[in-house]
Computed example of a mutant assay.
Amino acid sequence: MFIQSKPIWLKMPEEIEAFPVRCMNNNVLHCRLSLPKHWDVMPEMTETPLEIEHIFRGSNMSECLTINFMNNVDLQADIRDWLDSILALTGFPILGIKTVYQEADLITWIYQKDLSLAKGFDVDEFHAYQGLAQLSDNLNLNFLYVLLARRGKKAWKICLSLDSTYTSKTVDSANLNPDYEKAGSIFGNLFFLPDK
């Protein structure tokens, strides 16, 4: 339903007056991207020997940006397993949403493979996914976006959930630009910081 050669939500749109963002460098997670101005700038932080996670929450618990970073990945491993294992265990791709909404139904889930994206982001590997979900107490659908990237032994998983203006009865794949543009305003400044 949403397949395109290069996802529109990876392109920076014109400034959206109703959805202002601020660009942020996250030196701990070695990346730069934008965060909606009305979201909390202090993330929930978790660190294990394997990875660091920062979760930025929106005004609704259904909206969040989760950034996971691993500094020493196994080059023989498939980084898609980082996402696929969560999807297999919970039936949902974004753990930060599934822990809040026990009833989170994935309506569509699409892997968008475009080999040129890795070159564009100066990484060795890049995978993009997007989908639609219905959360238990939310009448509107949520748009989900997940990126996986690897440069050498560093790897990132970036997950975004945004409330949409659509319900399961009104969603129309030909008319989703305003919602894609919100995601584009967050991912449009995405940059993986080089090693120092």
Rank of each mutant, 00 (worst) to 15 (best):
F2A: 09
Q4S: 15
Q4F: 11
P7D: 12
P13Q: 10
P20V: 01
C23T: 15
N25R: 13
V28F: 04
C31W: 12
C31N: 12
C31V: 07
L33G: 01
W39G: 09
V41Y: 14
P43Q: 04
E47Q: 09
P49C: 09
L50T: 13
I55P: 03
F56K: 03
M61V: 06
M61F: 12
S62W: 01
E63N: 14
I67L: 14
N68F: 04
F69N: 10
M70D: 07
N71V: 06
N72I: 02
N72T: 02
D74H: 10
D74P: 05
A77E: 15
D78H: 04
R80M: 02
L83K: 11
S85H: 11
T90L: 13
T90I: 11
F92R: 02
P93K: 03
P93D: 03
I94L: 00
L95W: 07
L95G: 09
L95Q: 11
G96W: 08
G96Y: 04
K98R: 14
V100P: 01
Q102R: 02
Q102V: 11
Q102S: 09
E103Y: 07
L106Y: 03
I107C: 02
I107T: 04
T108R: 09
T108I: 03
W109Q: 04
I110C: 01
I110R: 03
Y111I: 09
L115Y: 11
S116K: 11
A118K: 02
D122F: 11
V123L: 06
D124I: 08
E125S: 07
F126Y: 03
A128E: 11
Y129H: 07
Q130N: 13
A133S: 15
L135I: 05
L135W: 01
S136Q: 12
N138V: 14
N138Q: 14
L139F: 08
N140W: 03
N140H: 12
L141N: 04
L141H: 10
Y145H: 08
A149V: 10
K153H: 11
K154H: 04
W156I: 00
I158H: 05
L160M: 15
L160Y: 15
L160G: 05
L162I: 00
S164T: 15
T165P: 01
T165L: 03
Y166T: 02
T170Y: 11
D172A: 05
S173K: 09
K182Q: 08
K182C: 01
S185Y: 09
I186V: 12
N189T: 14
L190W: 02
L190V: 07
P194K: 02
D195G: 03
K196L: 08
K196D: 11
